[in-house]
């Protein structure tokens, strides 16, 4: 027999590599066990510390003086996580008191130093703390972080800026929202709610007006959380000018939130649109702002060629304040279209 199986060198090499893997596995396993042992101990110690700190923090918040022992440097992240969590839970004066307590412990300086950490998780933690502390000294560094390519880092920094100075942050936030199309809406909404509808609605509406229609829908969706007095004129202006279907559907959605029965004629114009999803949005909006007098328009949509339009029309009819089971049966008896009858049967059930 030739080659590997009789070649002593190959056999020895194979044995050596095999033993190397076995030995490395055993060493790795021992390391894992030791790490786990320390992890379990650390978890127990952390739980004890958290309990102790939570109790001291709460006592201080409610006027019972309880001094802090020095927080060891190695446990500072743990303390900051606890402090951040309490910030998320508390509201009003307690929140401010918690910030003062943190300042008295020089947490702001510690967090500013942590901004230079090489670990992303530490930087993220420090940014959140500085935001909650409304630490103005951190503004320029946070602004730099907001330009980062790392989305989480950038958004966390923007959020912190919005907490530190909502008024000043509006233009920055909106400028980033326009240019960073990759940022997810659900994260931006949290920031906008921090800033407040009263502050962001006008500048955002102005920005939307300046954008090409392709870029408008994403920001229009943000207007769900805006001020109705600003949103409605914007929506009417856009609907009068645009032919972009995405813009139309976003505007109809906004009308369903902020509009009232006076806007029904605008909506009805879209019930015969050539695109099914626009007709569907029309029906959906009509369901929100329409009333009994719009029943006939909705009834016509029960025979639409698209299932979703029929379905939304049936749901809309059901949601009208004056609709009763008898009324739906009566509407059904008037239908000659099989699809309309089917969808009404479904709604009745």
């Amino acid at each position: 027999m030739i080659f590997f199986t009789t070649n002593i060198f190959i056999i020895k090499l194979s044995s050596f590599i095999g033993f190397f893997f076995v030995l490395t596995s055993i060493i790795l396993f021992i390391i894992i066990m030791i790490k786990r042992f320390y992890l379990i101990r650390k978890q127990k110690r952390d739980e004890r510390l958290l309990e102790e700190w939570r109790s001291i923090l709460l006592k201080n918040l409610y006027g019972v003086p309880a001094p802090f022992k020095n927080i060891p440097k190695k446990n500072i992240s743990l303390f900051l996580i606890l402090w951040n969590n309490l910030q998320d839970i508390l509201k009003g004066p307690e929140k401010e008191q918690l910030s003062q307590l943190a300042r008295s412990l020089h947490i702001n300086h510690i967090a500013l130093t942590m901004l230079s950490s090489r670990k992303l998780s530490k930087r993220l933690l420090a940014i959140s703390v500085l935001g909650n502390l409304r630490e103005k000294k951190a503004w320029s560094r946070l602004h730099e972080f907001a330009k980062s390519e790392n989305m989480t880092l950038a958004i966390t920094a923007i959020h912190a800026l919005a907490k530190i100075d909502p008024e000043k942050s509006v233009t920055i936030v909106i400028s980033f929202m326009v240019h960073r199309q990759d940022w997810p809406n659900y994260r931006l909404v949290v920031i906008l709610s921090e800033i407040g509808a009263g502050r962001f609605s006008n500048p955002l509406a102005n920005e939307i007006r300046l954008l090409p229609s392709l870029k408008q829908p994403r920001l229009l969706n943000m207007m769900n959380f805006g001020d109705g007095k600003v949103v409605l004129p914007l929506v009417k202006q856009l609907l009068a000018a645009t032919h972009n279907n995405e813009v139309i559907s976003s505007c109809l959605n906004l009308l369903s939130i902020f509009g009232d029965h006076r806007d029904v004629p605008i909506v009805k114009a879209y019930l015969n649109h050539k695109e099914a999803f626009i007709r569907m949005w029309g029906v959906k909006t009509l369901a929100s702002i329409g009333n009994e007098s719009d029943l006939l328009a909705l009834e016509r949509c029960l025979s639409d060629r698209d299932w979703w339009v029929r379905y939304r029309a049936a749901e809309a009819i059901k949601l009208l304040p004056t609709t009763t089971d008898e009324k739906i049966l009566e509407i059904r008896s008037r239908q000659s279209d099989r699809f309309a009858i089917d969808i009404l049967n479904y709604v009745i059930s």
Partner: peptide, 10 residues
């Protein structure tokens, strides 16, 4: 044995 150790070890 050598090849078994190698395969199992890896």
């Amino acid at each position: 044995v050598a090849f078994l150790i190698l395969a199992i070890g890896f």
